[in-house]
């Protein structure tokens, strides 16, 4: 059995659709989702929210020494994306060369294969970002 099968399954709404949460009391949005608002504590009202997938590059780095399994993608960029709704997340930036990237450039969500668990395990899909056309 693939390791972390249940964890991956549980995270599908986040990984496929950027489902996070927001606090109806103070309006702050969270990704990954928080179950408790750190500002409003017990009086906070948390509900699920789906982010648009639009954002900008807040920062990025180019990976030349990837972890096991990602060797054949190098060099690839990992970005800190600031979603237009507020939250920050870390994601791979695809369909671009490192020299195309610049802080502040607009990006949009794409659906890509993250990694497969060997040749017989599950294929994990999820969010990555590309420069907006």
């Amino acid at each position: 059995m693939s390791e972390g099968l249940a964890i991956h399954w549980r995270l599908i709404p986040q990984r496929y659709n950027l489902v996070g949460t927001e606090c109806l009391k103070c309006g702050e949005k969270f990704f990954p989702p928080r179950q408790l608002c750190p500002n409003c504590r017990r009086v906070g009202e948390i509900r699920e929210v789906k982010f648009s997938g639009e954002g900008e590059i807040y920062s990025y780095t180019v990976i030349h020494t990837p972890p096991e399994g990602f060797e054949f993608m190098k060099p690839y960029a990992m970005g800190v994306i600031k979603l237009i709704e507020g939250p920050f997340l870390t994601a791979q930036l695809v369909d671009c060369k490192p020299e195309d990237l610049e802080i502040g450039k607009r990006v949009e969500l794409v659906f890509r294969k993250i990694i497969a668990d060997g040749s017989s395990g599950i294929i994990r899909y999820g969010y990555k970002f590309k420069l907006k056309d």
Binding site: F72, F111, R112, K113
Partner: peptide, 13 residues
């Protein structure tokens, strides 16, 4: 297709 694209990712897009 890029190395991280397959029929599932193309179908989703």
């Amino acid at each position: 297709p890029a190395i991280d694209e397959d029929t599932a990712t193309i179908s989703v897009e």
